[in-house]
Design a protein around this nucleic acid. Structure first.
Lengths: 339, 339
DNA sequence: CATTGGCACTCGATAACATCGAGTGCCAAT
DNA sequence: ATTGGCACTCGATGTTATCGAGTGCCAATG
């Protein structure tokens, strides 16, 4: 660990700088640290240490003769070394528990409201990614005629998700036939795993009926493509409150636009999950728009395997301990709730 | 009409001020108008007229010795008198057509993407409200067991919407029983109007089966409450681009927060629709957050009756003609597409 | 009498400049 | 190794001067 290169006192000073800066949003000077850190040293000593911390890349001066501000690397050290301690304050823990105790919605609504709840608890924007339906089974397939030649394909999965798609038929089909086709598909696919559904050819089912074929291939396609929109974002307005990137209107626009392109966020966040990372700080995020933002995520597991992820998005100058506690608490309880 | 109190020349000057200001975002002076308006008058004359227009409340001076800016009342006059002319430019009209020509999603997805498309075409944030299911019929009711004591109620409506809710049962129920209950409900309710569903007592159906009862009352409740989230908002990032309210971080936060509270927006927009208003300018919007915003809406009708609404949200300083054209075009084509 | 050229006046925007003070870097003393 | 002392830096804040777009008003005009 390169971080061990910081001796105890430098670490303590860095910690104090981070904590002070997170609270005040002002560059913090040597004197403030000398008083607040608890070490019985003078400001001059602190200054000397800070020069070193700056040379090593943990601190930065916005301009000569201003106080110090943590760099991304500084936050990184803080997070790795100090953040994991501590749980969520009782009040907030209570909020989370109450939320799940009284939650009775379908999957989509639940996740949506979870994102808003996490946003309130963490005081940042929040993201909730739906569980990947790895282990989800098909619980029901149904074809519902809407108009002549137009039917709605509805698939219910064992995790409570409902996938649907409008189908346009090439030929007329009366209600009985559509219903029969639905029954056939249901019989064929119910109980099967949602991902890796066998396509029509491999089941020897091809040619039986045009309606069945159409619906079947649509269904396979539906299962194959990434589940339509597995990301719920809540509390975007909190980004505006204390966010560097919102300083310029242009920055705000770019950030908001990015959040509207769910694909981008999803792939970013999935990458974090894959690499087992829970905190991504500032420039550690590939994306330019997130230069001043940090992301804190935690995976959750439901029914052993189907895994999603919750996270918050805030300024690099965020209370990482609080964010981690909030994200952890919500992910655990969400996982439990879904099992 | 109080507006008729403006003689032809004052109207022309006001029009020129609005058009110039919309384009440049700078207070416009008498000279610019004298040149651009096409009236063959001197700047002094324009000045005289502008003093009157200001006294009457159509124009405003940000400060003495600056040019004039339209007031909300000024925009109002402009919209009432000049805006209705003109359709969408061919290029954009094409975009709209192409969009609907290749749209094949389920209702929710379609509306969501429509909001994004409208946002692109109008260059503002866009809203799409789902058609009220006034005339929607129940096409299918289904109960899908998820776990013991937990079943998912899925209702498909004739307009392609799918409503769903998780139900918790008080007693165990095997698959056969749940399935039977689903069938019973389906037989009972299929073909009925979604709104004003008769409750369990009035059908004499009560007591038949606990599962049926639970599901039935949940279903009635579902139909009774306003359909969960009938509002889709797209292109929020465009608000940041040229928006007064985004000047201060606080204003941005308040605006974004309002947009997250869908209920507020929905009721606001519905009120406009009820009053038959298509353009609501600045302070005409009850809400403080929208003091500098205008809303342009247009209703659409699908299958004669089921009516929703599309709209854009931008700065009061917006191109009303363009916005109206965009909103109108999209609403028409959306209505046609849904029929 | 509506229109217009002329002109003094206003006031925000921009720049140049002085001041203040929090915080630094460095050094000699402990 | 630590610390008090001190000169120095530089952003923030305030003051003042200048500039110019645009106004309001008035007397002249057709």
């Amino acid at each position: 660990m390169e971080h061990q290169e910081l001796d105890e006192r430098k670490a303590a000073i860095l910690k104090a700088v981070v904590e002070e800066y997170v609270e005040t949003a002002q560059p913090v000077g040597s004197q403030a640290i000398a008083l607040a850190s608890g070490l019985g040293v003078s400001s001059a000593t602190v200054r000397n240490e800070m020069t070193v911390l700056e040379r090593e890349g943990y601190l930065r001066q916005p301009h000569t003769s201003a106080g110090r501000v943590p760099t991304d690397q500084g936050y990184r050290f803080f997070v790795d070394r100090y953040a994991p301690t501590g749980g969520l304050p009782p009040v907030q823990r209570r909020v989370v528990s109450d939320f799940f105790a009284s939650a009775h919605q379908a999957l989509e609504d639940l996740l949506h409201e979870t994102s808003q709840m996490l946003s309130r608890v963490s005081r940042h924007a929040a993201m909730v990614m739906a569980p990947e339906p790895d282990s989800a089974l098909v619980r029901s397939v149904q074809l519902v005629p809407l108009q002549t030649r137009v039917v709605l394909l509805v698939v219910v999965l064992s995790n409570g998700a409902v996938e649907k798609q409008v189908l346009h038929l090439d030929q007329d089909a009366d209600e009985a036939r559509v219903s029969a086709a639905g029954g056939a598909l249901d019989a064929l696919l119910r109980g099967r795993a949602w991902v890796g559904l066998p396509d029509a050819t491999s089941t020897g089912d091809i040619g039986t009926d045009e309606v069945v074929d159409t619906a079947h291939s649509a269904l396979v396609g539906l299962a194959a493509e990434a589940t339509s929109e597995p990301l719920y974002v809540g509390g975007v307005s909190r980004l505006a409150a204390e966010q560097q990137a919102f300083a310029t209107n242009d920055g705000a626009a770019r950030l908001l636009e990015m959040l509207e392109h769910q694909v981008i966020v999803v792939s970013l966040v999935r990458e974090l999950l894959d690499r087992g990372i829970t905190v991504s700080i500032g420039s550690e995020n590939r994306l330019d728009e997130l230069r001043d933002c940090s992301i804190v995520v935690a995976p959750y597991e439901a029914e052993g395997g189907a895994a999603g992820l919750v996270g918050v998005l805030g300024p690099t100058r965020m209370d990482y301990r609080h964010a981690l506690a909030a994200v952890t608490a919500v992910s655990q309880q969400l996982g439990r709730h879904l099992s």
